[in-house]
Design a protein around this nucleic acid. Structure first.
Lengths: 210, 210
DNA sequence: GACTGTGAAGCCATTCACAGCT
DNA sequence: AGCTGTGAATGGCTTCACAGTC
């Protein structure tokens, strides 16, 4: 595995390819070309080949890629060959929905704990997971080494939760609050800002009228 | 307003700037420099100035930007000066959470209808919004001209829902299902793939160990 | 002195186009 | 003939650096 710097856009696409391949594989297809993958996910075939080339030579010239093999390679590249533990802070509407989101389990992410600061929520259950007080975050993080943290609390509380996560040793954070969070350089953080996405649609709708 | 092609990354940042400015404005700050904005949202000051320059000259050399004015400009650029209507298809965990998500209302997005295909859900209420059968989508879309559609159904059903939305005249779609959807060129579509985001974290966590 | 606006430079990602293999 | 892998060309975004303004 080359240490070359990989564009983030490539990683996003690899994740999309892998899900597309899972689907194709389920249909029993053995071999697939870069062009077919490209059609399936809406990119160019050159893009598919370039993306894969960062990580090795997975195909056969004149033939294409073996679906099962390529899928395996992608899952390995993405680090999805073993299960990841996930800790969610915030058991509001969004946090609850994320806790029970089947899409995570399908891809090997297991929610091991949900925490909230609201005393009325503590002790309630989401599926089989009991909501814990946020004061127990450090303890829970320690018990689940290298877990991924998800922040699903209101904007005002999000930075504080991030700080606590970092202190508890969490190295990767997915932030659903509409705030840009400050974290040390060695922490991997991604923001999923739901209204930003609507606002981009709003921008393009507006632009059409001009 | 110039017709120059604007990078999508710029639009995303404008949305982030606007929310940061709303926060600063609430604190009563009158004037702000590109450097202060940059610090607040984690980009370079040159980036902030370049982004704004696509749309005009909003600042005063030697002084900075008037917070209220700049905020107003950004909201106008993003098309957020009037309310957008939003139609959500899928009243599962995620659809329900999105329907009641306060962040949308704060930014002028109003959920006017929620639809589902499950007969057991029809007639139930989310906040004050009654869940309608998905068969009424065309009718609801017609009654809410230029509404934005949100897809929050399982992967297998998402393409069908997208087709129906397009036929019903919806021009912008936010897709939460983990599938790449095929839509006509004139439709604006964005994907928010929740597990892709976790998988990117997984990739970077894995890379650290190498 | 402070800060914006912007052409130019630098950098990074995507597309092209073709040699190489089956 | 079909398809991959990849160097070269292109295109686009970001950073630099400084002239212009207050």
């Amino acid at each position: 595995m080359k240490a070359l710097k990989i564009p983030e856009a490539t990683i996003i696409r690899l994740s999309v390819y892998s899900r597309f391949l899972a689907q194709v594989k389920r249909r029993g297809v053995i071999t697939i070309s870069s062009g077919e993958i490209a059609n399936g996910v809406g990119v160019s075939s050159a893009q598919v080949r370039k993306d894969l080339a960062y990580f090795g030579e997975f195909g056969t010239r004149g033939v294409g890629y073996n679906v099962g093999e390529l899928y395996g390679h992608l899952m390995k590249i993405l680090g999805l060959t073993s299960q990841w533990q996930v800790i969610i802070v915030g058991a509001g509407k969004l946090g609850s929905a994320l806790t029970m989101y089947a899409g995570f389990a399908e891809r090997g992410f297991k929610v091991v704990a949900v925490l909230d600061s609201d005393p009325r929520k503590i002790g309630q259950k989401l599926d089989s997971i009991e909501i814990l007080p946020v004061s127990r975050l450090a303890e829970v993080a320690a018990a689940n080494q290298s877990a991924i943290g998800i922040i699903a609390v209101p904007a005002e509380e999000s930075q504080e939760v991030a700080n606590t996560m970092v202190q508890a040793g969490i190295k990767a954070i997915l932030n659903f609050s509409p705030r840009v969070l400050m974290v040390p350089e060695d922490i991997v953080i991604r923001n999923v800002d739901l209204s930003v996405n609507l606002e981009i649609l709003s921008f393009y709708l507006g632009a059409q009228k001009r």
